[in-house]
């Protein structure tokens, strides 16, 4: 039951993009087409889950044991950026089709604040065990993917509409995102 609450809360109520404002760069940058949005969401889900598990282990078994909590930011970002490269190398060897699909999005992920944000949040929530953190990461990744794909399909339709000249492109996209956020506010109070 706890896990279901974590899932619903992270996907709908406290959506990572629309309520917590993490991962805005890919949300605006690669959402012009639906298939790139799907690729990016897949890559984020992959890296976010692994990164959260590994940073949780590092925090619990290294940083806390030796009283090094002040190194959290530095160690997490280093782990995430090396992890992304590692994932890239392993995927290339093990699963070329998956690498084909996710490959170009992987380098972009290092600077995706959603990954570091979820890792820090999961390690900062004191009653989160390893399984809780993993579910939390997966839930946030699903939330990211859902909003990303919704937004990409909205933007594809936006291309066909006659938008006033000064608002074309990014400004109109932000207004659409605002309305989407307004719609997601309807979920608040669910958990």
């Amino acid at each position: 039951m706890e896990y279901i609450i974590i899932l619903i809360s992270a996907i709908f109520v406290n959506n990572i993009v629309l309520a917590k404002f993490l991962g805005i760069c890919p949300f605006v940058g690669v959402s012009a087409k639906t298939d790139t949005a799907v690729g990016m969401s897949g890559a984020v889900m992959f890296v976010m889950t692994i990164a959260t598990i590994i940073t949780w282990l590092i925090k619990t078994y290294i940083l806390e044991v030796y009283g090094l909590q002040f190194l959290e930011i530095i160690s997490f970002i280093l782990v995430i950026s090396s992890l992304v490269q590692l994932v890239e190398i392993i995927l290339k060897k093990v699963s070329p089709p998956l690498f084909q699909a996710l490959g170009i999005y992987l380098p972009l992920i290092t600077t995706n604040c959603a990954i570091l944000g979820v890792a820090i949040e999961a390690s900062g929530t004191t009653d989160f065990g390893l399984l809780h953190s993993t579910v939390f990461a997966i839930a946030n990744a699903i939330g990211f993917g859902l909003v990303m794909i919704l937004f990409a399909s909205l933007r594809e339709h936006l291309d066909l509409v006659n938008v006033p000249k000064g608002m074309r492109g990014v400004p109109a996209a932000f207004i659409v995102a605002g309305i989407l956020a307004l719609a997601f506010m309807g979920f608040s109070g669910m958990v």
């Binding site: 309520a19 404002f21 608002m167 400004p171 996209a173 932000f174 207004i175 605002g178 307004l182």
Partner: peptide
């Protein structure tokens, strides 16, 4: 002050 205002506000400011 809530989330939607951030997106809408920034959209208009960019314009």
């Amino acid at each position: 002050v809530l989330a939607p205002g951030a997106f809408i506000g920034l959209g208009y400011l960019i314009a």
